[in-house]
Design a protein around this nucleic acid. Structure first.
Lengths: 201, 201
DNA sequence: GTCCTTAGTGATCGAACGATAACTTATCTC
DNA sequence: GAGATAAGTTATCGTTCGATCACTAAGGAC
């Protein structure tokens, strides 16, 4: 296989494993297993574990911004009116759709709590601010609207990171919280979560 | 020193170190150094690193709920009117005040992204739902209000985890985002962040 | 058909980490 | 004051992990 294609497979596997176990918790051996290659190859293909993580974060960010851009693009000729979804709602749906790429939002979230790290910190801050500026400048949100939108996103990340959906059948309050968080996307998220039921480490 | 007092010191040190480096990234040796004891004593005093982390999470949760309870308690005879802060604003201020205990909110946040872990996951979900129920039932919020409040909290956690305040002097957009996130508490948070400037690992 | 580049593996190394064991010191009890 | 108990340390062990090294196989160029 071509090197670049193999690197692509490794990156997808890494995204998933980093999302599940965090930057420190994930091991290159786990990633290698998930990608179907040997452990040294994972390291050699990206230099170091840290560089692989940074590549995953960068990829995740570009995926998110690309999805937002497609929504904003199509917003020009979208119908308006009380019965049509707002731009904010459509961007929110695009955000939740990122869950289709396993580990994408969670890898970002793991980066967001490692701001103290001298390498990951700047990357995380820069990425977050890139999203902030895009929503404000390209989507036309006010600073207050951006903040509210991002806050909803961070709550969604937390619900996913906590695997709160595991409590859906057993806790009515969790059900209430999840329903409010995902709204029309709830069933889709439930299906995705069911597919990725925890395998053994 | 009495064992219980020493355990208290270790727990505070652990809260700080876990907040900085995460559950996996933090080492018992770092915690020991921060607490002024030997590494084996940290382990022996709490059984395992995992049990120490769970104790930290439990402590953090009780601190948060206690602060909320004091606000709700004092809310009965609080003045109302347009020029007085709402209950939500006062609870938000109590939340930000938790930053006075180093690592408290961040240790919680680290637990919130480890939902896959068979031990930390249930503890994190249970703790989060405990806060949810308290805000809804004791503070009298509607489900929608609780969700919005928690979302703001998760954004605050993200700002802290990213150390976004480090960009305050260099990035006007970060300044704008931080001003919206912390409002009247911004100066207080800035002072706290300046105090805990990153020491070497 | 030889040569060189690319893709990839197996073996292994050194460092770091959590945990355990054995020991020391101080305090309190009878 | 002997003996027990609690507090805490030093030394060390086994495991795990990221990284490195040496090697092999495949394929294209000439």
């Amino acid at each position: 296989m071509r090197g670049e294609d193999r690197r692509e497979l490794i990156m997808q596997a890494a995204m998933k494993v980093f999302g599940d176990y965090g930057y420190v918790g994930a091991t290159t051996a786990q990633i290698a297993r998930a990608a179907g290659v040997s452990q040294p190859y994972v390291v050699q293909a990206f230099g170091t574990k840290e560089q692989l993580f940074l590549a995953v974060i960068e990829r995740a960010l570009q995926s998110l911004l690309g999805a937002f851009a497609r929504v904003v693009e199509s917003d020009r000729d979208a119908p308006v009116g009380p019965e049509h979804p707002t731009l904010s709602a459509r961007l929110g749906a695009a955000y939740v759709d990122q869950l289709n790429e396993p580990g994408l939002l969670l890898s970002l979230m793991h980066a967001f709590v490692l701001g103290k790290d001298h390498t990951i910190g700047p990357a995380g801050r820069g990425g977050f601010m890139q999203v902030y500026r895009y929503l404000r400048d390209a989507a036309g949100f006010s600073p207050e609207e951006v903040r509210a939108f991002l806050a909803e996103g961070m709550l969604i990340n937390t619900m996913i990171g906590l695997r709160m959906i595991d409590e859906f059948d057993t806790d009515a309050d969790a059900r209430e919280l999840l329903a409010g968080s995902f709204e029309r996307k709830l069933d889709q998220v439930r299906r995705l979560a069911a597919d990725s039921a925890s395998p053994p480490r």
